[in-house]
Simulated assay, not measured.
Amino acid sequence: MPPTLSTETATSETRRRAARIATEVLAPWVWVLGLPLAVAWQVTGHRLGEALMWGLIVGITGSLIPMAVIVRGAKQGKWDSHHVTNRAGRLIPFAACIGSLALGFVVLIVGSAPHEMIALAAAELACLLVALAVTFGFKFKISMHAIVAAGATVMLMRVYGPWLALLFLGVAWVCWSRVELKDHSVAEVSVGTLVGLIVGGGAFITLASALG
């Protein structure tokens, strides 16, 4: 028997609920806050104080400060939501992210942070600059969810081992969620994933090896 209207509606709502969960739980700010703490924990030899210090420098300047600007702007109606799904509204959020993280990057260098942390901040900056160029230079709303999730997965694999390739399941889930919610197209999440892998992950691996 063909599915009834109520069954189709329930299935559609279940899909959207799963998509909303992925979009929030695997949002860029969540990755950018947790990733540096995870990397710092490993590269400092599990020394809690040092791990928190270096991890929070990147997490606060790369995630919390920009997110505070974005949420405030969303409440003031400057863009549609804290995910800033309208392409034209992304300039100020990009500027906030780049400016704040650049400050954290300088602090890491001046403070002689572990080279992996410097490489991490540099890779994140590179991703932001590429995303900015693509978004406004090519007028293509590249997915930051995809960039950050894919890049973070490669970074964690480099630091903890290849078994963390399992996180690509999360990358696939969040990419699906952005398309399911109609915030991005398949092309936008696909290009975002490639940028995350090549620019984010590639820059991190290259710089961490060169600086080490």
Rank of each mutant, 00 (worst) to 15 (best):
L156C: 00
M67T: 08
I205T: 12
A113M: 12
T11Y: 03
S185D: 10
H145P: 01
V71N: 06
L56A: 08
G161N: 01
P114S: 09
A150W: 00
R178A: 03
A19N: 09
P162I: 10
E180N: 08
L101E: 03
W29L: 07
C175W: 06
A38E: 02
S112P: 06
V199R: 01
R72H: 12
F168I: 11
F168H: 10
M144N: 01
V159L: 02
A19H: 10
H83F: 08
S81A: 14
A131S: 15
R87N: 11
T44C: 10
S12L: 15
G45E: 12
L5C: 05
G62P: 00
P66F: 06
L194I: 15
H184V: 10
V189I: 13
V39L: 07
R20N: 14
E188S: 07
V106T: 13
S190M: 12
G192D: 04
T11Q: 13
S112G: 09
H115L: 10
F136S: 05
P93Y: 11
V43M: 08
V195I: 15
V134C: 08
I98Y: 02
V110P: 09
A149L: 02
T23S: 15
T135H: 10
L64M: 12
V106R: 08
W54E: 09
G77M: 13
G111E: 13
R158D: 10
I147C: 02
A10C: 00
A121K: 05
Y160T: 04
K182A: 13
R158S: 05
F94Q: 02
L169H: 11
A113S: 11
